[in-house]
Nucleic acid binder design. Structure first.
Lengths: 182, 182
DNA sequence: ACCTGAACACCGTTCAAGT
DNA sequence: ACCTGAACACCGTTCAAGT
């Protein structure tokens, strides 16, 4: 029963780690830099996070929550096809604006987090207005695979053969939507 | 002008590093372990590779070369659609069999290597029999994005919501091929 | 209850010195 | 020419000790 004079908070620590990762990439995230940017020393972090990976998991969760919110906003259309295009555009912009944070997303393993479920939910909604019920899950997997693959390759410099990458993104999305309709 | 008594070779070092990455992931690759598994000490590696990243680049290149060879073999059909399905199946199997090596692939940046070009070539060939010339590049980007996204998500445990992942893979591929034909 | 200094093991990298 | 031991800086993690 002591004053509990916490110098910082879990959220502040996660925000600091997220900022460092966004700037320098997860490989450059050191616990010393996180600690010093919230005014404590590295060993104190172990009172709040089991280890470096647990802190990174918390950052990933916060990134997924932000992505889910952005996708929710983008899904405010009536037409399911417009919803899908808007979400896809938002998804890609999110990845391009903060590539180092985007890279965190797929590395979770294990059960899908609440934030991960929230990020997929609007896609399921849109697809339920476009395809038969039993097709929603594979259709969602097709679109998430396409989106993740495209953004992942793009931010890794995988599209260097010329041509418009913007147009290719839209072309592929249209191909999939067309294929889903038929 | 000395005997040049090399205890090992670049290829042997790359093979050793590839084996360690395949087993434990790239994060666990230490130069000490690579060196000891080819019978030298860590500092000697710097006579052959600029730094740890350069060694990893060499491993990635060797992985891409193997992938390219596997895809070439898979493309030995007459029908372009069968070529695409066979290449996609081979691509996914490659990723699932050696996920830690697969993860190396997108992280290159910069100019596409010869190995990377060789890996895409058979897809371009197949597509040239399926779509108009000016559509080959965006169509290839659509398919590579889908394939990379699917495999990447699958090996990271991203498909945990039930249903058959095998069927979903085939479903999405068919959707894209259908969309490309129309 | 939260924080810290000191310590440990481990690692990438450099470099002078060996043969 | 290729290899090594020694050294350096850096980092994740633990833990006893502070308040």
């Amino acid at each position: 029963m002591c004053p509990a004079l916490a110098k910082t908070s879990d959220d502040e620590i996660v925000a600091a780690a997220r900022a460092i990762i966004a700037q320098n990439g997860v490989d450059k995230l050191s616990l010393g830099s996180v600690a010093s940017s919230v005014g404590i020393k590295a060993p104190s972090l172990y009172k709040r996070f089991a280890d470096r990976d647990a802190l990174i998991d918390a950052v990933r969760d916060s990134v997924l929550t932000r992505l889910a919110k952005a996708l929710e906003d983008a899904a405010r259309h009536r037409d399911p096809e417009k919803q899908i295009v808007a979400m896809a555009t938002t998804y890609r912009r999110f990845g391009k604006e903060q590539p180092e944070l985007y890279r965190l997303i797929p590395a979770s393993g294990g059960e899908p987090s609440d934030a991960a479920r929230a990020a997929i939910a609007p896609l399921f909604d849109a697809l339920s207005g476009l395809v038969a019920a039993e097709t929603i899950l594979p259709a969602a997997r097709c679109i998430t695979a396409y989106l993740h693959g495209f953004v992942s390759l793009e931010i890794s410099g995988g599209f260097q053969l010329g041509g418009s990458v913007d147009q290719a993104f839209r072309f592929g999305l249209d191909v999939i939507v067309k294929g889903l309709r038929s």
